[in-house]
């Protein structure tokens, strides 16, 4: 079975000429199917850059990265947009659209699939909100929800389109201890039951227990 994420010799630098600043200096990493992998390391170690490259949010420079069977080196914008639809993203902030209800926000992730009728989109959005324990809050605007509830809506949105991979960047950073704990456990349970691998960047030592594997980065390299 092919690995959802296979990276070898990945290098990346910001800036040009004298200002060139290498961030990734040869990263080799793979994520197994259904695996929950936590990426830790100090600020500036390159974790976030690595995540944006895997998420096809940035053009690659050097090395190879196969994500869900797609080689990203040399991939054009169209290929990358198509790949992003197969990846669930969870950000530090929930980034929900303030003028849409929780259900509509989740359904937004399904609108890129033209074959799905509107009713089906809303039904699936409702199911996912129920799965994250927000069935009664489905028709509320994000402003009416607590921080933890909003992040749970973001989890539902990330999983809505049946992604082959979930990428999360410090999903607990803006939450209190209890809400953060709930959100990551919910995320782990949902991902495990669907066999979706998760690659999560975190500083938070409280959530390391959900991981199958923890990888540390420093200075643009994997250290452990």
């Amino acid at each position: 079975m092919p690995m959802p994420v296979e990276i070898s010799g990945l290098r990346y630098a910001y800036g040009q000429g004298e200002l060139r600043r290498p961030v990734l200096r040869g990263v080799d990493l793979s994520v197994a199917p259904g695996e929950i992998l936590l990426l830790t390391g100090p600020s500036g170690s390159g974790k976030t850059t690595l995540l944006t490259l895997i998420g096809a949010l940035r053009a690659m420079q050097e090395g190879s990265a196969r994500v869900l069977g797609v080689e990203l080196n040399g991939a054009d914008e169209k290929t990358r947009v198509a790949l992003r639809r197969r990846i669930g993203f969870i950000f530090q902030n929930h980034n929900l659209l303030g003028f849409l209800t929780a259900r509509q926000n989740v359904a937004m992730a399904l609108e890129t699939d033209a074959a799905l009728p509107e009713r089906e989109r809303l039904r699936r959005a409702g199911e996912l909100l129920a799965a994250v324990g927000l069935a009664e809050h489905a028709d509320k605007l994000p402003a009416k929800l607590s921080g933890g509830q909003r992040q749970r809506v973001a989890v539902a949105r990330a999983l809505a389109a049946d992604p082959g991979l979930v990428l999360a960047d410090e999903p607990t950073a803006a939450l209190d201890r209890q809400s953060g704990f709930e959100v990551v456990h919910l995320l782990r349970d949902l991902a495990k039951s669907r066999g979706v691998p998760i690659l999560m960047v975190t500083h938070d030592p409280r959530i390391l227990d959900i991981a199958d594997r923890v990888v540390a980065m420093e200075d643009g390299r994997i250290t452990a």
Binding site: F89, N95, M108, A161
Partner: peptide, 16 residues
Amino acid sequence: NHLREYATLKAIGYSD
């Protein structure tokens, strides 16, 4: 005012 939300939509696969 909604730059973050638009960027999020781009991240989840909305084309330019």
